[in-house]
Every structure is written in structure tokens, then in C-alpha cells.
Amino acid sequence: MLMFALRRILVSIPVLIGITLILFIMLNVVPGDPVALMMKEHASADVIERVRQQMHLDDPLLTRYLSFLWDALHGDLGKSIKLNRPVTDLILKAFPNTLMLAVSAALVSWIVGIPVGILSAVRRDSFLDRFFMGFSLLGVSMPIFWSALLLQYVFAMKLRLLPVSGFYGWQYMILPAIVLGWSSAGVIARLMRSSLLEVMRLDYIRTARAKGLRETGVITRHALKNALIPVVTIMAIQVAGLLSGAVITEAIFSIPGVGRITISAISSRDMPLLQGAVLFATVLVILGNLVADILYSVLDPRIRAQMRKEA
């Protein structure tokens, strides 16, 4: 088990290094001088030159990459050109808001997705099943920015039940969490359904039925335990996905999170800030995948056995 976790962690390291390299190259081959581009005509040649030197933009690309990597490992992602503050501080200050959004969205998607998936599987091919599956397809097919606008229009503008946007308290989190959670609720519901259907076909379920257990008992006590494994593992990936996918939701609801930082970094062409924010989100996603894989092997002894065979 520990060996598996260790091996899995070791495999992620080259991926992470590769990603930092790709990201660094993409952001640093921007045609034109990034500093001049950002400051436009407001800055004199002297100022531009000084900022260039501060950012070591005249060093060779490889040197700059290595020092970027070294600094990043020490928690230093450079300084935002526009705000003149350390990128790490800006991200860490915004992160709790993004985390809160992602966690509440995840809660929405579990509270909706898991029961819907179970009901659909139990009542397979019924009207309810078709309705739920149609609904979850709708959730997946709707652009987030659009469903956000619809909810804003109905609940904030017309019914005036909730605030339109901003972030001054828990009630500001409700609409964003529903918007972001709904799209992944569809994914969870479908996975829950197919996983439960698969388990229900197995022999031990037939045994449970044969010994006279009621159907609810069969499902809650026997089937769900195994059917939930893939769902639980997808959750770790999902939370990470929500953290980075919050960009659009944060933009629409004006939530001061990491996603908003990313967008404002793009529009103000603040390269170090953009680089730091994207790197941060990507590391989260990789960590999420890592946790999911390890969780999977902890929860499912079959996976562990397979790992042992491969090793």
C-alpha cells in the first residue's frame, strides 16, 4: 500500500516538472517585451529597463526557468507586475474563497448526484430514471456561464431572494455553488447509476436476496458499499477540477478567488501573476488525481491486489 502510494507520487513528479516547463515556455515566448506590453506607453524606457532587470528577463531562458523552478519550490512565485506584491500572497489570500466555492459546489453535486444516481439505478428504465438522466445530461450540456445568468435573472433579479453577485456572506455563495455544483452533479449521478447497476449484477447480491433480505437492505447494506467506491474516488478529482473550473463562476459572481486573479492577470497582461495562478491550479489538479488513485487502492482491495501483481 505504502509502496503503491510512494510509486504513484514519484510518477507525478516528472509530470509536474514537465508542466512547469510547458507553462514557462508558453508564457515566456510571448512575442514582444512583456514589460513594455503591460505598461504600454505609460512607462519610460528607464522604468521598463529596471523592471526587466528585476524580473531577470535578460537572462537566458534556461537559467530563468531553473531559477523559477527553484523559487517556486520555496513558495516564491515572483512578484505581480501590476500590483507589485508577491504572487504567492495574492493567491493565498484568494484561495480560501475559491476553496469555499469548490467545497460548497461539491456538496451540492453530491447531495443531488448520489441520491439521483441511486434512484435511477433502482428504478432502472422507469420514467423517473429517464427523467433524471435527461436532467443530468442537461446539466452537463449547459454552459456554466449561461446557467449562472439564468439563475441570477430568476432568483436575484426577478424574485430578489438572493444577491446577484459579490462576496459578503454565506448567502452570496448559494447561487455560485448551485451553478458550479449542478454541472458535476450530472457526472456524479451517471457514475453512481452505472456503478450501482454493475454491482447489482454480482453474485453476492443474489446471495443477499436469496437469504431473504429486503431490497432496501440489499442496496443500503451490501450494494452501496461497493458501488460508492468509484464515486468516492471521482470526488477527489472533482474537487480539484472545481477548484480550477471556478474561473467562469468567479467571474460571473464577482467572487475574489484564484479564478478571478487568473482572468485579471490575462487582461492586464500580468505574466508572473498568470504563471503563478495557473501553476497553483495545476498542482491542485495533480494532487487531486494522486489522492483519487491512492484512495481507490485503499478502498478497493482488488486494485491493491492488481498493484501487487504488477510490482
Binding site: M26, A281, T282
Partner: peptide, 14 residues
């Protein structure tokens, strides 16, 4: 592993 939307945004930025 790269979040798709962010990757696309970085490409568009560059």
C-alpha cells in the same frame, strides 16, 4: 493534468 480551460486561456494569452 493541465486544466483544459486554463491551458486554453494561456495559449490565447500567448
Amino acid at each position: 493534468a493541465f486544466p483544459s480551460l486554463l491551458l486554453a486561456m494561456v495559449v490565447m494569452y500567448t
